[in-house]
Amino acid sequence: MIEIISSVFLIVGAFFSLTGAVGIFKFPDFFTRVHAASVTDSISTILIIFGLILRTDFDLVAVKLLFILIFMLLTSPTASHALAKSARHGGLLTLAETRSDKKVGDD
């Protein structure tokens, strides 16, 4: 039973990972691509690591996986945030702003 639940977690996690990869290729500009990569990364990390924890004997390995999860949840969104913010500071416009040719204010 636990095996099946874990498989579902893993497969859904892998699916979200794949959508992130597709998004990076298909989305039109930088910010939407960062969005695709980061959001799907977070959810697929949670799902895959939970799926893996269900397959352990709930011993030290499970605790280590939890540590990895916490670390990933701290660092991965931070990296995406820093990336997007740096692009914004560098003067990159979003797609909507480029289309309406609006000047971007300093945030």
Binding site: L74, T75, T78, H81, A82, K85, H89
Partner: peptide, 8 residues
Amino acid sequence: SHLVLRVV
């Protein structure tokens, strides 16, 4: 300026 980065 990267407050989030500094905290994390």
